[in-house]
């Protein structure tokens, strides 16, 4: 290697380090500090130790948001692990039209979450198309307030999240499926194994690492859900669909309670960390086995 002046690499890194420093690393440190202050609006705030966290434990709205986030994550993750896998298996055949289906199934990924929420907001109105189709198929007897009934609002948001995510995880599975040898399927078919049997005994075991990856990605993005909640229901009715990030937004950005909202952010981070560590564990165990 030819000698170079010591600062040359740093000049190459300078723009990135500036942006990361100001808009990423400093805020990371500051979030930790703020979470232990009573910072509010323009006032800097003073050190209050773990007071914010004690307050959080007694905040019914926070507990509600935490519960909704848990329900949301537990509901969405299994669907986003299983449905895209089935979809990937469906489009992974050497049959005419498969690349067309693949492309169309990916299209919701390309549209923004705002667009997805607006499309479904229009579909899910009580006088909307979705109710009409379900009544037509005799699944429902009368229109349902998908977004206005407190018992259904969160479920409707989850439905939109799954709809938007299917294509993305399908592509990840398709990449994994390229490693499943065709001979195995052929041999199993000759042995009389049906499609579900082959899926369960061949595809699923070989794709397990991909499934762990998808579960992790889906869990992390589920725990930080914001846009679809904000656009579809605004967290309502009566906070029935308000999850963590919309509540952080409400207190920190709208209410300007920086300290208190930062404490919530720390809780959010802890949850993300748990999912990441869990995923690491699951992957490592498999590698050792």
């Amino acid at each position: 290697m030819i000698g170079r002046r010591w600062y040359v690499p740093w000049l190459f890194l300078l723009p990135s380090l500036l942006v990361l420093g100001v808009f990423y690393w400093w805020p990371i440190a500051n979030t930790g500090v703020l979470s232990m202050t009573d910072a509010h609006a323009i006032r800097g705030g003073s050190f209050t130790g773990l007071d914010n966290f004690v307050r959080l434990a007694g905040d019914p709205f926070f507990r509600n948001a935490l519960k909704n986030s848990a329900v949301f994550t537990i509901g969405v993750v299994p669907l986003l692990v299983i449905l895209p896998l089935l979809l990937a298996v469906l489009v992974n055949a050497k049959l005419p039209g498969m690349s067309f289906f693949r492309t169309v199934f990916f299209s919701p990924v390309v549209a923004s979450m705002v667009v997805a929420a607006l499309l479904w907001g229009w579909m899910l109105r009580s006088d909307g198309l979705f109710n009409w189709v379900l009544i037509r198929l005799q699944i429902l007897n009368e229109p349902v307030g998908w977004l206005t009934d407190p018992a259904l609002a969160l479920i409707s948001v989850m439905f939109v999240t799954v709809w938007k995510g299917l294509g993305y995880y399908m592509i990840i599975y398709l990449a994994g499926l390229q490693n499943v040898p065709e001979e195995l399927h052929e041999a199993a078919t000759v042995d009389g194994a049906g499609a579900f049997r082959r899926l369960w005994s061949i595809t699923v075991p070989l794709l397990r690492p991909t499934m762990v990856l998808v579960a992790t990605l889906a869990a992390i993005s589920a725990i930080k859900v914001f846009t679809e909640v904000f656009v579809l229901t605004g967290g309502g009715p009566r906070r029935s669909s308000q999850t963590l990030v919309p509540y952080i937004y409400e207190r920190g950005i709208v209410g300007l309670e920086m300290g208190y909202a930062s404490a919530m952010s720390i809780v959010l981070f802890a949850l993300v960390l748990v999912f990441t560590v869990l995923a690491g564990r699951l992957t490592r165990k498999r590698a050792q086995a």
Partner: peptide, 13 residues
């Protein structure tokens, strides 16, 4: 560390 965790501080900066 996702943006959602640090958004309050990014807003302040």
């Amino acid at each position: 560390i996702p943006f959602e965790v640090i958004m309050i501080s990014v807003f302040l900066v």
